[in-house]
């Protein structure tokens, strides 16, 4: 799943760095993701994984790293890594 997440971050995160080199805990905002890009990423994640982030998860923290995103998606799909 992490590679799928990585692909979506590459497509929607608007990062200036190569997404392939990111560690799972690299802060995506520090890597250049704007808050609007994080919205685009959120919508793409919902479409790809057929999920809807509840209000309580709509915070920058949820989308702050590849690992955080994976954990959030797993929580909503009930999947394990």
């Amino acid at each position: 799943m992490i590679e799928q997440v990585r692909g979506l971050v590459a497509d929607h995160g608007g990062l200036a760095v190569d997404v392939a080199t990111l560690a799972e805990d690299t802060d995506l905002y520090r890597a250049g993701m704007s808050s609007f890009a994080s919205v685009q990423l959120m919508l793409a994640l919902e479409e790809t994984f057929d999920i809807e982030f509840p209000e309580t998860m709509l915070s920058p923290k949820t989308f702050s790293s590849l690992g955080a995103i994976q954990a959030a998606v797993q929580q909503l799909t009930g999947a394990t890594a």
């Binding site: 808050s35 994080s38 919205v39 709509l58 920058p60």
Partner: peptide, 13 residues
């Protein structure tokens, strides 16, 4: 929209 909540929180943080 829903994404707006995310943007607003980032702006506040």
């Amino acid at each position: 929209g829903r994404g707006g909540k995310l943007m607003a929180m980032a702006q506040r943080e």
